[in-house]
Amino acid sequence: MSEILLQVEGLEAGYGDVQVLWGISLKVARGTMTTLLGANGAGKTTSLRAITGAMCPRGGKVVFAGEDVTWLPAHAKAARGLVLVPEGRQLFNNMSVEENLEMGAYSRRARQHFRQQLDHVYTMFPRLKERRNQKSGTFSGGEQQMLAIARGLMAMPEILIIDELSLGLAPVVVQQLAETLKGLKASGVTVLLVEQNLHLALALSDYAYVIAEGRPFLEGPSAEVAAKPEIRQAYLGL
C-alpha cells in the first residue's frame, strides 16, 4: 500500500452531554478515494468535523502527512492541505464567485498559487467562470456544490474531504459531479468522501469504511464491501 496521508485513531467527539463518536479509526492512502459510510446519525459528519477541526475532538489522534494535527484549529489544518467541503455547501452567499474562491485560497501556501489554481478551477467548471462576478446566493444547488468543491480546491488540498456530495441535488447533476470527482482522482488528488448514496460512493471509491452508532462497523476495498450482506445491517440497524 502506498503512503498513508491521513490516519485517524480512536477518535471521540460529541456535542454537550451527548457523545457521538466512540473511537473511529481510518486510514487514507495518498492518491486514493476513500468513502465513509453509515446510516443517518451514525456519526459521519461528526467524524469529518472532528478530523478537520470544525469541532474539537474529545480524544483520539489525527495524524496528517506524518504530523499529529489533532488539536490544531481548523484554519491551521486547512492551511496544511487538510480541507473540508462542508455539508450544505456553506458558501459566502453575499459574496461573488471569485471572492468565494479567493477566500478558499486564504492560507499563505494557497495564496502563492492563486492565479494558476483559479485558471485550473475555471477550466474544470466553465460555468463558474461565466458567473464569476455573480453572488453565490443566487445559484442553483448543483452550481453551489461546484463552487463549494472549487473553493476547496483553491486551498491546494493534499486531501479533499467532501461531506454529502449529492445531498438535495438532481440525479443528472450528481452524475456530473461524479465525473468531476473521477477527474480529480485521476489528477492525483486524495479524496475522503461521505455520501448518502451508497451505490455511488462504493462505485467511485477504492476503499470503504462503514460506521454504526459512532463505532467502526466494517471496512474493506469498496468492491468487497458492496458485496457484503452486513452493509444492510449497518444501514437498517437490523
Binding site: A74, H75, A78, L84, L91, G104
Partner: peptide, 10 residues
Amino acid sequence: TNREAAELCG
C-alpha cells in the same frame, strides 16, 4: 457571513 466556513477556508 459564515464563520465556520471561513475557518475551514484557512
